[in-house]
């Protein structure tokens, strides 16, 4: 198991190299001159040229990329062009807000998704099942930003129950968490339902019933644990995806998270900021994936015996 984890952590190295190379190339190829952006539109050309030389922007692409990697290995990802602060300082300042929103969103999704999925599966084709499947379809198909705006319209503008944006205490978390949680809940519901439907037809479920196990326990103990692997996968993917910044939701609710930071950085061609954000997002995503894989082993002993 430890060996497996170490192996997975080592795999992060090529992942990060690949990600940075791609993002660096894209940033290099997109139009716009960082020196010009830093100095402003009206700066004299010779000053811009001087700054370009200072920043090494006149060096060939490969030289620039390797300089970035070399500095990165030393933990120096540079400073933001726009705020002049170290990029990771900025990211870490924003990360708690994103983490908070992600956890709240995923919690909403799990609390709705898993129970609804279980009931739908045990009462297949019932009214409850049909209604919740239509609900799930709506949940996945509704655009996030539109749903967020509708919530704001109803609960902030009309009813004035909850704030429409910002990160000020628990009440401001409610609407963005519901916005994020709804589509994730829809996915989790569908996955729980189909996974449970498959499991409750298995022979060992019949064995459990033949032992005289309470029906409630047959479902919640015998069946659910076996159905959990695909559910964990979906929850993990959603979690990792949201941690990378729920860009649209963060924008709609002016939530000061990593997603918005990244979008702003791209708009300003703030290359160090973009690179650092992307590296950060891919590392957190990989970590969440690793956590999910470790969790598999705890749920299913057959998987554990494969992790060597």
């Amino acid at each position: 198991m430890h060996k497996y984890i170490l192996h997975r952590l080592l795999l992060l190295i090529p992942v990060i190299l690949g990600v940075t190379f791609i993002v660096y190339s894209i940033m290099y190829l997109t139009p716009g001159d960082p020196a010009q952006i830093i100095l402003g539109e009206s700066a004299p050309p010779e000053k811009v040229e001087q700054l370009r030389e200072e920043m090494g922007l006149n060096d060939p692409f490969i030289v620039q990329y390797f300089r970035f990697i070399k500095n990165g290995l030393k933990g120096d990802f540079g400073r933001s062009y726009s705020t002049r602060r170290p990029v990771f300082e900025e990211i870490f300042a924003r990360f708690p807000a994103t983490l908070k929103l992600t956890i709240a969103g995923v919690l909403v999704a799990i609390i709705i998704g898993i129970p609804v999925g279980i009931i739908s599966a045990t009462k297949q084709y019932s009214l409850f099942d049909n209604v919740s499947m239509v609900g799930a379809l709506l949940g996945v198909s509704m655009p996030n930003f539109w749903f967020g705006l509708m919530l704001v319209l109803v609960f902030s503008v009309t009813l004035k129950w909850l704030p429409s944006g910002g990160d000020n205490g628990l009440s401001s978390l409610v609407l963005p968490a519901i916005t994020l949680g709804t589509s994730a809940a829809a996915l989790i519901t569908r996955m729980t339902r189909s996974s449970m439907l498959e499991v409750i037809r298995q022979d060992y479920i019949r064995t459990a019933r033949a032992k005289g196990v309470l029906e409630k326990k047959v479902i919640n103990k015998h069946a659910l644990k076996n159905a959990l692997i695909p559910i964990i996968t979906v929850v993990g993917l959603q979690f990792g995806y949201l941690l990378g910044g729920a860009v649209l939701t963060e924008t709609v609710f002016s939530w000061p998270g990593v997603g918005r930071l990244l979008v702003d950085a791209i708009r300003q061609k703030d290359t160090p900021m973009v690179l650092a954000s992307v590296v950060f997002v891919s590392v957190t995503f990989s970590f969440v994936n690793l956590m999910v894989d470790i969790l598999y082993a705890y749920v299913d002993p057959r998987i554990k015996s494969q992790y060597k």
């Binding site: 060992y204 064995t207 033949a210 002993p301």
Partner: peptide, 16 residues
């Protein structure tokens, strides 16, 4: 009354 099922491969819960 208890019952023994046909296929032992699938009749035990794999996660218990």
């Amino acid at each position: 009354i208890s019952m023994i099922f046909q296929d032992p491969m699938t009749s035990l819960n794999p996660v218990m």
